[in-house]
Nucleic acid binder design. Structure first.
Lengths: 69, 69
DNA sequence: CCGTGATGTCAAGCGACCTTGACCTTCGTC
DNA sequence: GACGAAGGTCAAGGTCGCTTGACATCACGG
């Protein structure tokens, strides 16, 4: 599962702290999502996608081959 | 936050148990999501959307006006 | 009347998401 | 060298997603 949060953030010239505040989450959460420590919840995924003017499906691509089953 | 899981399931003539098995989750999980008890995780949201040949954004619409904050 | 399929509730437990707070390193600048 | 901004780690704690298992209801066919 890859996500384009980091590149979208850098494209806007924002720091992790800036993005965290804009999304209403902690800086830890932004770090953890960017680094793939865990996946955002569905509501947070929507806020991220909308903040960057994108869609959940475009921001996070689920790789079918990586199903943990 | 509304979702179209129930109507998509009924449109295919599937029971909750059928859908649960197809998604690899428990029947409780399907019931809880359909009834709005809680939101699916991001991976499960993707599996649901793909199972029904749709997108996460189309299956679950986040209502901006219903932000809990 | 009895059984079965479909939907639903409740409860206990586990792990993932998210928080706060303390601390570290690197880089640029004064 | 001292400072601040940015990215990162670690730990403890709370809430939510998901599980299993037991049980209740309603409609239906035998």
């Amino acid at each position: 599962m890859r996500n384009r949060v980091r590149e979208a953030r850098l494209a806007r010239g924002l720091s992790q702290a800036d993005l965290a505040e804009a999304l209403g989450v902690s800086r830890q959460t932004v770090i953890s999502i960017e680094r793939g420590r865990y996946l955002p919840s569905l509501p947070l995924a929507f806020r991220i996608a909308r903040f960057f003017g994108s869609t959940v499906d475009a921001m996070f691509d689920m790789d079918e081959s990586k199903r943990s089953s």
